[in-house]
Design a protein around this nucleic acid. Structure first.
Lengths: 216, 216
DNA sequence: CATTCACAGTACCGTACGGTACGGTTCGCT
DNA sequence: AGCGAACCGTACCGTACGGTACTGTGAATG
């Protein structure tokens, strides 16, 4: 959401990034159907010919949009200091809230809808791109957190991926899908804090080594 | 998947149901883009004019497809007999496996993709239809199961919906979304059994009243 | 047999979109 | 000044799709 600290264009020029921004905005508040080449060109004040020169074809544009957005939301590494039970919980709750807010973001929702829509066609790499750049990134942060918790003797698990899968499920459940299906995400955004607390509490009850947990 | 026991067409004639079947098949192995009115008419050996007479317009056809499919997968009520810790666990595992298999079904995936694709447009009721007919149905079965478990003194929870949300998250996590994004669902179908066991074990550790649980 | 109904098949229309081509303009370089 | 690259704006083309109208046909109904 924030950050434009260092210039990061491994792929495209600033001008092209601006075009991708316009395209993303168009996608967000119009859906895929609104994302026409002519529409993008008009919204970005560029010519269709340039679009095709830069991105090849429409699918190339879509891929570029995903790559661009992924490069923007690079998750910050929270370097775990000395972990206690409380700080671990704190970090986990923070992670959970961040995750929920990312998933509920309109750009994220729009891109996921787009990729899902393309998933039926064969060659579509969009799904795996989102998967790779999105979840894998977030998963790395969570994985590091879990690993640190285990090293500090606060968590107990054999398979880190399995533990992360559990954590993810506890946090998100089917909320993401419901939002993708159109359920008003703003209305439920208020509960993210509570939901994050709940999920982390449950996760710690499952994987935590402290016996004392918070109970009502 | 099975069952054609009693004739159940609250909505459409057999002929029309056959057309909807063709449309579903078309959707499954071609995606939304392949689902053209001409294509449906050709596949079902009917005329476009009849399609429009029966279903109004393309959106009507989509709605009818969802309603028709929902009427087919009506979940059976497993009337819970006297519950013990073991039978409860058994029922939960069975539920979890059924849930995973339904979600992994190609018709389910195709319809979810369709509804998600339409979710951006305003008037689209498809998302809520799927939500209502799909999850709510399944949720009723799970809810009854959870309630029975609580009444038998085997489960402890205050909010049934919250407990169900947790159960759902433990079972599914982001698997559904990954499949919607195109990850090969057949490859992971083999793990459904193990996954169901894991999820139910975790759920019982969270909400079960028996202190003795299975441990490795 | 005549009439009507439901439907298939097909031709048709308007439109919207992906992709291409071209004229005109700006800007940097020599 | 001259030149060329990049690029905008627009016009254009082919096609595909949603939706409508028309014709033919077979089966029921009187």
């Amino acid at each position: 959401m924030q950050l434009a600290a260092h210039p990061h264009q491994p792929d495209y020029s600033p001008r092209q990034n601006a075009v991708l921004d316009s395209a993303l905005r168009l996608l967000v508040d119009g859906g895929e159907k609104a994302l026409t080449t002519a529409g993008v060109a008009r919204a970005a004040n560029c010519s269709k010919e340039s679009l095709y020169k830069w991105f090849g074809d429409r699918d190339g544009l879509l891929s570029a949009m995903i790559g661009y957005q992924a490069s923007k939301v690079r998750t910050f590494e929270d370097n775990a200091e000395a972990l206690t039970a409380d700080t671990l919980r704190e970090h986990l709750v923070l992670f959970a809230r961040d995750l929920l807010e990312v998933l509920a973001g309109d750009v994220s929702l729009a891109l996921n809808r787009l990729a899902i829509g393309q998933a039926s066609r064969e060659g579509s790499k969009l799904g795996s791109m989102l998967q790779e750049r999105g979840r894998r990134q977030v998963g790395k942060r969570a994985g590091a957190l879990l690993e640190a918790g285990r090293n500090a003797g606060l968590l107990a698990f054999d398979d880190r991926d399995e533990a992360y899968d559990t954590l993810y499920g506890l946090i998100v459940s089917d909320l993401h899908l419901r939002m993708l299906l159109g359920e008003d995400s703003g209305r439920m955004a208020k509960d993210f804090g509570r939901r994050a607390e709940r999920a982390v509490s449950a996760f710690l009850r499952l994987y935590g080594r402290e016996k004392g947990s918070v109970e009502p």
